[in-house]
């Protein structure tokens, strides 16, 4: 029985058994999807259906389902996290679609993000970039000192906070025509570079993180700005300019080791 405003949709979902498999798009029909359901709930319904039919359900990453963890990577109808701005896939609702629509659902595409299965990609490249310098070497918690000892201009603090809201989802890489990770890395560089605690290691940090980024096989930045538009957290291109400055000045000023 279908309800008055239930959606009947054709889904074209990328299916790939494992990292070695070539993979292909498969078509599925889902019926009577509530416009109020989230995109991932719609995927759950599809998977219930596949399980009932004795087929392998579609593998996709998800955890928090509230726009915080950044795992729900899906390239929907040609855009990272689908249509809509400032949201992850789990925050996308089916009311964005019309009855009878065909929806393409693909994994993030980047050499540095190999597909593991179906829509699940390996984003450990981001972890290795963080391990290369995305931290402060001294313990900054538990030995809190008087805040007035380290005055920080409000604007700088806000910019550092904004940069720190990056959830490492990889939508920037997925959207970029060059699969560049500049927005992610620049957010991580900026969140430290803007604060006094981050300054002592700033030069070394940016050099090491950029080096790791390049080694992972991400592309260069063509300043198209696609990343900023698709980023669920609205991370600004200002961070990329800051990273360029930090990197270039670090490279030119650093003493020969």
């Amino acid at each position: 029985m279908s309800t008055a405003n239930g959606l009947n949709l054709t889904l074209k979902v990328w299916r790939q058994k494992n990292n070695k498999d070539k993979g292909k798009l498969e078509s599925y029909q889902v019926t009577d999807i509530s416009p109020d359901s989230s995109f991932l709930e719609m995927m759950d319904i599809l998977n219930e259906q596949l399980i009932d039919e004795g087929q392998d359900p579609v593998a996709f990453d998800h955890d928090c389902r509230e726009g915080i963890c950044g795992t729900c990577s899906m390239y929907i109808n040609g855009e990272a996290h689908g249509p809509g701005r400032g949201i992850t896939t789990c925050q996308l609702h089916m009311r964005e679609f019309k009855n009878g629509d065909t929806i393409y659902i693909e994994p993030w595409r980047a050499k540095a993000f190999p597909v593991l299965k179906d829509l699940v990609v390996d984003r450990s490249g981001f972890d290795r970039i963080m391990a290369a310098g995305g931290f402060i070497s001294v313990n900054t918690s538990g030995n809190t000192q008087d805040a007035n000892n380290i005055p920080i201009p409000k604007l700088e603090a806000d910019k550092a906070f904004d940069a720190a809201t990056c959830i490492g989802c990889g939508a920037c890489v997925a959207s970029c025509k060059n699969a560049s990770a500049m927005l992610f890395v620049s957010a991580k560089v900026s969140q430290f570079a803007l604060l006094p605690q981050g300054r002592p290691e700033a030069a070394e940090r940016v050099q090491n993180m950029v080096k790791q980024m390049d080694e992972e096989g991400f592309g260069n930045c063509s300043n198209t700005g696609a990343c900023e538009v698709e980023c669920p957290k609205g991370i600004s291109l200002e961070n990329i300019a800051r990273m360029n400055r930090e990197y270039l000045s670090a490279s030119f000023k650093a003493e020969e080791a």
């Binding site: 074209k12 109808n77 050499k111 540095a112 597909v115 060059n178 538009v229």
Partner: peptide, 18 residues
């Protein structure tokens, strides 16, 4: 840059964001 994405998207809306 081309090498950084070996498999292309089946559907890609470049005009939506750049």
């Amino acid at each position: 840059n081309k090498n950084a994405r070996e498999v292309k998207y089946a559907k890609n809306e470049g005009g939506a964001n750049s």
